[in-house]
Protein backbone atom coordinates (compact mmCIF):
# COMPACT_ATOMS: atom_id res chain seq x y z
CA UNK A 1 0.00 0.00 0.00
CA UNK A 2 1.32 3.34 -0.93
CA UNK A 3 1.68 6.33 1.30
CA UNK A 4 -1.35 8.47 2.00
CA UNK A 5 -1.53 12.23 2.05
CA UNK A 6 -1.97 13.82 5.46
CA UNK A 7 -5.68 14.45 4.92
CA UNK A 8 -6.32 10.87 3.86
CA UNK A 9 -4.22 9.59 6.72
CA UNK A 10 -6.11 11.57 9.34
CA UNK A 11 -9.54 10.63 8.03
CA UNK A 12 -8.55 6.95 7.93
CA UNK A 13 -7.02 7.17 11.39
CA UNK A 14 -10.18 8.76 12.75
CA UNK A 15 -12.30 5.97 11.32
CA UNK A 16 -9.82 3.45 12.73
CA UNK A 17 -10.33 4.93 16.19
CA UNK A 18 -14.11 5.02 15.84
CA UNK A 19 -14.28 1.36 14.84
CA UNK A 20 -12.12 0.51 17.85
CA UNK A 21 -14.58 2.34 20.09
CA UNK A 22 -17.45 0.12 19.04
CA UNK A 23 -15.68 -3.12 19.98
CA UNK A 24 -14.85 -3.97 23.60
CA UNK A 25 -11.21 -4.83 22.92
CA UNK A 26 -8.50 -4.10 20.45
CA UNK A 27 -5.35 -2.15 19.87
CA UNK A 28 -4.09 0.58 17.63
CA UNK A 29 -0.40 0.87 17.04
CA UNK A 30 1.22 4.05 15.81
CA UNK A 31 4.86 4.13 14.79
CA UNK A 32 7.17 6.91 13.78
CA UNK A 33 10.69 6.71 12.44
CA UNK A 34 13.08 8.48 10.16
CA UNK A 35 12.52 7.76 6.51
CA UNK A 36 15.93 6.91 5.15
CA UNK A 37 14.87 4.65 2.30
CA UNK A 38 15.46 6.24 -1.09
CA UNK A 39 16.85 9.33 0.58
CA UNK A 40 20.09 11.11 -0.24
CA UNK A 41 22.02 9.95 2.81
CA UNK A 42 25.65 8.99 2.47
CA UNK A 43 26.54 5.40 3.27
CA UNK A 44 29.00 4.97 6.13
CA UNK A 45 31.56 3.44 3.79
CA UNK A 46 31.39 6.36 1.36
CA UNK A 47 32.22 9.19 3.73
CA UNK A 48 35.10 9.85 6.05
CA UNK A 49 32.69 10.92 8.75
CA UNK A 50 32.33 8.28 11.45
CA UNK A 51 28.64 9.03 11.98
CA UNK A 52 27.10 10.25 8.75
CA UNK A 53 23.61 9.94 10.22
CA UNK A 54 24.43 12.36 13.03
CA UNK A 55 25.53 15.21 10.76
CA UNK A 56 22.96 15.48 8.03
CA UNK A 57 23.22 17.99 5.24
CA UNK A 58 19.45 18.48 5.32
CA UNK A 59 16.73 17.14 7.64
CA UNK A 60 15.01 13.95 6.54
CA UNK A 61 11.28 13.23 6.44
CA UNK A 62 9.55 10.96 8.93
CA UNK A 63 7.33 8.03 8.15
CA UNK A 64 4.28 7.43 10.33
CA UNK A 65 2.48 4.10 10.36
CA UNK A 66 -0.84 3.23 11.93
CA UNK A 67 -2.34 -0.22 12.19
CA UNK A 68 -5.14 -1.98 14.03
CA UNK A 69 -2.82 -4.92 14.74
CA UNK A 70 -5.16 -7.62 13.48
CA UNK A 71 -3.51 -10.96 12.92
CA UNK A 72 -4.25 -14.58 12.04
CA UNK A 73 -7.93 -15.14 11.16
CA UNK A 74 -8.76 -11.46 11.09
CA UNK A 75 -5.84 -10.82 8.85
CA UNK A 76 -6.90 -13.57 6.48
CA UNK A 77 -10.37 -12.06 6.48
CA UNK A 78 -8.85 -8.81 5.33
CA UNK A 79 -9.57 -6.90 8.51
CA UNK A 80 -6.04 -5.70 9.00
CA UNK A 81 -5.69 -2.02 8.26
CA UNK A 82 -2.33 -0.40 7.70
CA UNK A 83 -1.87 3.27 7.02
CA UNK A 84 1.34 5.11 6.30
CA UNK A 85 2.19 8.67 5.55
CA UNK A 86 5.36 10.64 5.04
CA UNK A 87 5.87 13.89 6.92
CA UNK A 88 8.37 16.37 5.54
CA UNK A 89 10.44 18.29 8.08
CA UNK A 90 8.66 21.53 7.21
CA UNK A 91 5.24 20.08 7.97
CA UNK A 92 6.12 18.50 11.32
CA UNK A 93 4.48 21.10 13.49
CA UNK A 94 1.21 21.22 11.59
CA UNK A 95 1.07 17.46 11.35
CA UNK A 96 1.59 16.90 15.05
CA UNK A 97 -1.02 19.40 16.13
CA UNK A 98 -3.59 17.58 13.99
CA UNK A 99 -2.21 14.24 15.16
CA UNK A 100 -2.72 15.27 18.78
CA UNK A 101 -6.30 16.27 18.06
CA UNK A 102 -7.12 12.96 16.40
CA UNK A 103 -5.45 10.95 19.16
CA UNK A 104 -7.17 12.88 21.93
CA UNK A 105 -10.54 12.34 20.30
CA UNK A 106 -9.86 8.71 19.43
CA UNK A 107 -8.41 7.40 22.66
CA UNK A 108 -11.67 7.51 24.52
CA UNK A 109 -11.01 4.34 26.48
CA UNK A 110 -8.56 6.09 28.76
CA UNK A 111 -9.46 7.30 32.21
CA UNK A 112 -10.99 10.77 32.17
CA UNK A 113 -9.59 13.37 34.51
CA UNK A 114 -10.80 12.43 37.98
CA UNK A 115 -12.41 15.35 39.77
CA UNK A 116 -14.07 13.41 42.56
CA UNK A 117 -10.82 13.02 44.49
CA UNK A 118 -10.16 16.73 44.51
CA UNK A 119 -13.64 17.36 45.83
CA UNK A 120 -13.16 14.80 48.59
CA UNK A 121 -9.89 16.44 49.55
CA UNK A 122 -11.47 19.85 49.84
CA UNK A 123 -14.20 18.34 52.00
CA UNK A 124 -11.66 16.64 54.22
CA UNK A 125 -9.79 19.88 54.71
CA UNK A 126 -12.97 21.66 55.72
CA UNK A 127 -13.72 18.96 58.25
CA UNK A 128 -10.24 19.11 59.69
CA UNK A 129 -10.51 22.87 60.03
CA UNK A 130 -13.79 22.46 61.89
CA UNK A 131 -12.21 19.97 64.31
CA UNK A 132 -9.28 22.28 64.95
CA UNK A 133 -11.63 25.18 65.66
CA UNK A 134 -13.64 23.07 68.10
Amino acid sequence: MGHLTHDEFFTSLTSLFTTSKSSPKGSIILTQKRLSYNQPTPQPSESNDTFPDLNLASPLPLIIHATNAKSKEDRKAGKKIRLSTVVNPDDLEGFYSRYAEVCRAGMAGLKPRDRTKRKAKAKGRKKKGAVAAA
Binding site: P59, L92, Y96, A108, L110, R113
Partner: peptide, 25 residues
Amino acid sequence: KTSKAAEVGRLVSMLGNLGRRMSGL
Protein backbone atom coordinates in the same frame (compact mmCIF):
# COMPACT_ATOMS: atom_id res chain seq x y z
CA LYS B 1 2.66 3.47 30.27
CA THR B 2 -0.37 5.52 31.21
CA SER B 3 -4.13 5.23 31.38
CA LYS B 4 -4.95 8.90 31.79
CA ALA B 5 -6.73 10.69 28.99
CA ALA B 6 -5.41 14.02 30.23
CA GLU B 7 -1.90 13.02 29.24
CA VAL B 8 -2.58 12.24 25.59
CA GLY B 9 -2.12 15.77 24.33
CA ARG B 10 1.12 16.24 26.18
CA LEU B 11 2.46 12.87 25.02
CA VAL B 12 1.72 13.58 21.38
CA SER B 13 3.53 16.89 21.64
CA MET B 14 6.44 14.93 23.08
CA LEU B 15 6.25 12.68 20.04
CA GLY B 16 6.41 15.80 17.92
CA ASN B 17 9.48 16.99 19.75
CA LEU B 18 11.17 13.65 19.32
CA GLY B 19 10.07 13.70 15.69
CA ARG B 20 12.07 16.87 15.21
CA ARG B 21 15.15 15.14 16.51
CA MET B 22 14.41 12.12 14.39
CA SER B 23 14.27 14.11 11.19
CA GLY B 24 17.50 15.89 12.06
CA LEU B 25 16.11 19.29 12.95
